[in-house]
């Protein structure tokens, strides 16, 4: 019985953590993607369009 319930509790704990984290993962990842696109995307067109903002925010250049 003990050997049966332990893994199940582990899985339940994992799913609890997943249920708690999941609602925040999408906004968090969207925010990180936006930051990468605006600040560090290695495309010259993006850099030229956002040149001043990138330098003011201290993001890496070309």
């Amino acid at each position: 019985m003990h050997a049966f319930t332990q893994p199940f509790r582990g899985r339940a704990a994992l799913s609890t953590i997943a249920a708690r984290v999941a609602p925040f993962a999408l906004p968090l990842l969207t925010g990180l993607a936006l930051l990468w696109l605006a600040g560090a995307a290695p495309y010259p067109a993006v850099h030229d369009a956002l040149h001043d903002v990138r330098h003011v925010a201290g993001f890496p250049c070309h």
């Binding site: 708690r20 968090l28 925010g31 369009a49 040149h51 001043d52």
Partner: peptide
């Protein structure tokens, strides 16, 4: 010369990105 729309879009993108990250952390 960075176009004005570029500065506007870039600053909104950086602000929104930071806001999404910090809001998620706070709400968590």
């Amino acid at each position: 010369t960075t176009p004005l729309w570029g500065i506007l879009v870039g600053s909104l993108a950086i602000t929104t990105g930071l806001s999404l990250v910090i809001t998620s952390l706070c709400r968590a």
